[in-house]
Design a protein around this nucleic acid. Sequence first.
DNA 1: CCGAACTTTCAGTAATTTTTGAAATTACTG
DNA 2: CAGTAATTTCAAAAATTACTGAAAGTTCGG
Lengths: 186, 186
Amino acid sequence: MLHFGEMGSRWGINRTVGQVYALLYASQAPLSADEIVAALGVSRSNVSMSLKELQSWELVRLQHLPGDRRDYFSTPDDIWQIVRTLAEQRRKREIDPTLSVLRGLIVTQPGSEADEYAQQRLQQMHDLIELLVQWADEVQRLNTKELVQLLRLGSKVVGLLELKNKLPGLGRGLRRQPAETDAQPD
Amino acid sequence: MLHFGEMGSRWGINRTVGQVYALLYASQAPLSADEIVAALGVSRSNVSMSLKELQSWELVRLQHLPGDRRDYFSTPDDIWQIVRTLAEQRRKREIDPTLSVLRGLIVTQPGSEADEYAQQRLQQMHDLIELLVQWADEVQRLNTKELVQLLRLGSKVVGLLELKNKLPGLGRGLRRQPAETDAQPD
DNA sequence: CCGAACTTTCAGTAATTTTTGAAATTACTG
DNA sequence: CAGTAATTTCAAAAATTACTGAAAGTTCGG
């Protein structure tokens, strides 16, 4: 648990938040705030804040047990779902704002040659981030099984790509969203 | 620049370090420590420490201009190289230690049923991280052009995968490291 | 609408991290 | 090798972030 607290803090996540999440993740039954307090030895209010933070990231589920007024918290069973949520939230909070800052800087009139170079560099960064985001977006939509398959394949895909180029006639069959009209070739 | 300082601190990177890197990234000519001080308005010693940090991450290159005793710093021209270095370093510093902690926990004798569940969960996490790391490793080896192609392809690869399954006879042709002997099928 | 059970808020304090200036070190020049 | 330029180290100050206990808030059965 401690290790995940540490790790959290290296990735910009509060230590207690990391510990609470690790605990919930590893626990089969949902836990109440008091149980977390007992397990981690931190104050009740700290746990309350950490849970609120985790809720704002949509990383925990709040549920009630019948005949019990306390809040119980748990994490999704599918760990890939956790990864998806994490990616989605980080994107919304950090990536998207960064992209808009970059876009803002790129469209301003350069005041010097140095500015021009800087803009070109920022454009590169912008395009890179956008490419990664689009990739993540698409991959996000796959179900867990397909996702694992895709990752297992790794860079071998490049080989497949060459194959595809050699067999252009099969190209159309590969599209996930078939372009029915030939009006707009890519 | 300020934005990247902020962003850095959300990802576990010191604010000044982020600003220094952003400055170097956007600058065509290599910069000396004093130039960075002038541009960012932070203390000389802070810049020195930040540069040392960046050097320890292998993210900046130190070079000397002829007839000038000062150290000049710059970033790689290829932004994908930066991403590769970043991934490599984070892996070494954070992912690998986490994997060993996980392995350590997984092999201990479970003391209870709850332990058993926890171990199973940790195993899932371990396998997930390992899969991602292996994927990253393979993709890492691609050159920039291939990498971009692969990412552009995104989840369409799943479609290719299906194609491959339909044409098993072509399978061998796809390998990057051809297995010449048929002794060890996968 | 009371009171018990539970949760959240918040101001103050503690802990951690970042930044700095001064001093020490290193590297180079003539 | 003395002198100077450049860099690094380090202890202390400043800033930030995390944590706590006390108090306020909420919910719900009776």
